[in-house]
Design a binder for these strands. Structure first.
Length: 814
DNA sequence: GTAGGGTTAG
């Protein structure tokens, strides 16, 4: 076909050869180029053939034909050649210059576009070249420059036309004070007489919609203005309908969106897609399927955008079977091969399959995409990160072509931080600037999370300082990370300061602050904040309830905790997950209500998993119920045989009861199965450096100093009533002395002593431990705080202990 | 020669 078309276009060229340079030849060429233009992209390539013919026949084209040629070369992305042609023109006219300018604009080359614009002599400038330059700014996310140029052109008496208004209105969505500009431009539109032009009104509607979509404005009022414009339009086109529908969708007013949608005579695929994406965002998955099926039955063909939305709905909602069905449906009904789908379809398929747990299929899809975009790379990257395969994630990260996006870095940084590799996360964060990328607020959130993991308060504070200097301190994600960081570093006041100063809060902020109070043993304040959250009309989510129930558990507020668990189900219609049950069990067990906990387990709808048994086991250890504890441990070993915590808890329980044979049996069991106990270690920050102590440490350079002072301090606290509690020794040792020595080498004691020696008086000592604090250390540190007159804060694996004047904030309830 | 809508990743 293509060849035939080419022949028909080229056929009558014989006589052109003879009549070069005549105006007849020029007309003939012009007519042919017009045909090429009408043919679309395949025609652009043919234009090059005609051009070759001109050159071969010695025809020297005039401005009009040259301009068309430049335009064709630009369209077929042969910009370099277009520029060469352009340079041959002695005095290019405004059309040639604007063509080139627009070509630079569409390839994202702002600098060259501006240079081209600046080189246009003032006397030949017109409205159109201004329009092109304004569009270029809009596409390069520089709304202010677009507005500036718009004002400048008016000052210079160029009359804005409908193109000008649509472009500059489009650029408005990118500026902060868009509402102000929007009103001014609306007036200008009315005065200019373009307010009846469909495209201009469409742009106005679109701006009102975008202004509405902002937390700082009254969205319903602005949506009403948009709707009024829409209703009063003389002629509506496809775009008018879809703009108002997506406007409602974006502002979460699906009812109004549906009302407009229903009023369309001929519903276009885009309108369907807009509605579907609204239902996806709201999580109305079954509405999504309903629309998807209805399209099919009405004979409206799904397109790649439809697939993308529907598949992402499945992935988000965890409806993996549905997702697979949709995938199968696509493969059945589409004639084109999978790799010819819009890249977004394949991207969302990657998400779907890794969420199913099938990273291999996800990887195959990724590998099969011919032209991967940044989203493809970032999706597979976050897939590996979320699955904890940091190794493969790093490989992908390093393989990413040309410029990684900001997102690639943030995925990697926060992924590393969440997986516990805080140091690597910070290292990567520090590599951003040398790579020419100024970290955004999300990158900061990741780095701050890393500080939370490392309990590195100093570095966290420095990042906070940078945030303020860069003006990111109002960022939600960064502030949320700061709350958690300060809380996890033991500085509750600072966490609350950040929370109190936030201009707007989301559920993550509330959850983080409630969790902070909970971990620090302020159950009452946690519940108070929860009540406040409800008053502010913030809907609690499943995370909220996890933190609320934990907070109750840490403070022994059993009845309240049970009440909130109930209300989660009955009032907020959130079905409890295993994690919720585990916290309920924990709440009951700590309070000694083991029988009630067992009742809950028996009445659970789903099979109890590891989290449940672990909560029961630690409750049994606390209250010395060996039989029940052993039962829970058995279940745990069945489920997660390699988990060291189970054996430790069990051994602890036996040793407390003095059943040394059983302790030995557990230890042998561990050896046989190759389960290793995670060694206890504690750390603290002194002068911006992290000092780590292991049990019975011999590695730290100043350990001698620590042991000497510890020995002296223990004698002093004995006078205050300290009696070493040797039931916390896990080994069966011959003498009490040996046992006492074993206790005295616990890492948390060493770290606390190091803090006493190194940190100036008046500065609280903040120690962090990977495992839970031992009971003997707990009573020793209480008295150390008293003897030294210092505030000591210990964060263990589960919560905080604030020691002061011989008491702990947990009131011995942990 | 110039403009405007629907999708995916944290």
């Amino acid at each position: 076909m293509k060849n035939a078309a080419a022949k028909s276009l080229l056929l009558p060229t014989q006589h052109l050869r003879r009549s070069a340079d005549t105006s007849a030849a020029a007309n003939e060429y012009a007519a042919k180029l017009q045909l090429c233009f009408e043919r679309g992209p395949p025609g652009y390539a043919l234009a090059a053939v005609i051009h070759a013919h001109m050159i071969a026949s010695g025809f020297s084209p005039r401005a009009h034909i040259l301009n068309r040629m430049i335009s064709f070369y630009c369209k077929s992305s042969n910009l370099d050649y277009a520029k060469k042609l352009f340079d041959k023109i002695p005095q290019p006219d405004i059309v040639a210059r604007t063509t080139l300018l627009a070509a630079y604009s569409s390839t994202g080359n702002l600098k060259l576009a501006r240079k081209t614009f600046d080189s246009i002599p003032l006397k030949i400038r017109d409205t159109v070249c201004h329009n092109a330059m304004i569009t270029c700014y809009a596409h390069n996310n520089d709304g202010h420059k677009a507005i500036h140029l718009f004002n400048e052109m008016r000052r210079n008496n160029f009359k804005p036309d409908n193109f000008t208004y649509t472009s500059v209105l489009g650029a408005l969505s990118l500026v902060a004070d868009r509402e102000h500009h929007c009103q001014q431009l609306h007036c200008a539109v009315v005065k200019s007489g373009t307010s009846f032009v469909t495209s201009v009104v469409n742009a106005l509607i679109s701006v009102y919609v975008k202004c509405a979509f902002s937390p700082l404005t009254s969205s319903s009022l602005l949506m009403k203005s948009a709707r009024k414009l829409f209703d009063e339009m003389l002629t509506k086109d496809e775009l008018s309908w879809t703009t108002i529908i997506t406007g409602y969708v974006k502002n979460e007013d699906l009812d109004s969106a549906k009302e407009v949608f229903d009023g369309m005579d001929e519903k276009l695929v885009v309108a369907w897609n807009a509605m579907i994406s609204g239902y996806v965002q709201k999580g109305f998955v079954f509405k999504v399927f309903e629309m998807f099926r209805k399209m099919h039955s009405l004979g409206i063909k799904h397109d790649d955008f439809t697939y993308t939305s529907v598949l992402s709905a499945c992935a988000d909602a965890g409806l993996f079977l549905h997702g697979k069905e949709v995938h199968a449906h696509i493969l059945r009904t589409e004639a084109k091969p999978a790799r010819d789908f819009l890249v977004s379809v394949n991207n969302v398929l990657i998400t779907l399959y890794w969420k199913i747990g099938n990273i291999n299929i996800a990887r195959n899809i990724f590998d099969s995409i011919c032209v991967k975009d940044l989203v493809s790379w970032n999706t597979i990257l976050s897939a590996y990160v979320s699955m904890g395969n940091i190794h493969e994630a790093k490989t992908i990260f390093n393989k990413m072509p040309e410029k990684k996006s900001m997102l690639s870095w943030t995925v990697m940084i926060s992924g590393l931080a969440q997986q516990g590799s805080g140091e690597e996360a910070l290292q990567l964060f520090n590599e951003m600037r040398p790579n020419g990328l100024e970290p955004c607020d999300y990158a900061f959130s990741g780095a701050i999370t890393a500080c939370a993991v490392l309990a590195s308060l100093e570095q966290g504070r420095q990042l906070h300082g940078q945030l303020i200097r860069l003006g990111f301190d109002s960022s939600l994600s960064a502030a949320n990370a700061l709350i958690t960081m300060y809380a996890r570093c033991g500085v509750l006041d600072s966490a609350q300061n950040v929370f109190d100063r936030m201009p707007c809060l989301d559920s993550v902020s509330w959850n983080a602050m409630i969790a902070a109070f909970g971990q620090h043993g302020h159950g009452g304040r946690a519940l108070g904040l929860y009540e406040e959250m409800l008053k502010e009309q913030i809907l609690p989510d499943r995370i909220t309830f996890l933190t609320v129930i934990s907070a109750c558990s840490h403070s022994g507020l059993v009845e309240q905790g049970k009440k909130h668990f109930e209300s989660m189900i009955k009032v907020y219609k959130i079905s409890p997950g295993e994690d919720h049950y585990a916290r309920l069990i924990d709440l009951l067990c700590r309070a000694g209500k083991l029988t009630e906990a067992c009742d809950v387990i028996q009445n659970m709808t789903h099979k109890p998993g590891a989290q449940i048994w672990e909560a029961l086991l630690s409750g049994c250890r606390l209250h010395g119920d060996i039989e029940l504890g052993a039962h829970a441990a058995e279940r745990l070993v069945e489920l997660i045989p390699q988990h060291d915590g189970t054996y430790i808890l069990l051994a602890n329980m036996f040793s407390t009861a003095g059943r040394w044979d059983d302790v030995a049996r557990v230890r042998k069991f561990m050896r046989d199965r190759g389960v290793k106990k995670e060694p206890g270690c504690s750390w603290l920050e002194v002068e911006n450096k992290v000092h780590v102590f292991l049990v019975d440490d011999t590695v730290h350079p100043e350990v001698k100093l620590v042991y000497d002072y510890l020995k002296e301090l223990v004698t002093r606290i004995r006078d205050l009533g300290y009696v070493p509690d040797t039931k916390y020794v896990l080994h069966d040792m011959e003498s009490e002395e040996q046992k006492e020595y074993a206790l005295s080498t616990h890492s948390e004691k060493l770290a606390v002593v190091y803090g006493i020696l190194k940190l100036p008086r008046g500065v609280p000592i903040r120690v962090f431990k990977n495992l839970r604090i031992c009971g003997d250390c707990h009573s020793a540190v209480k008295l150390m705080a008293k003897a030294e007159g210092r505030e000591i804060i210990v964060r263990d694996g589960k919560r905080f202990h604030h020691f002061k004047d011989g008491v702990c904030s947990c009131r011995n309830y942990w």
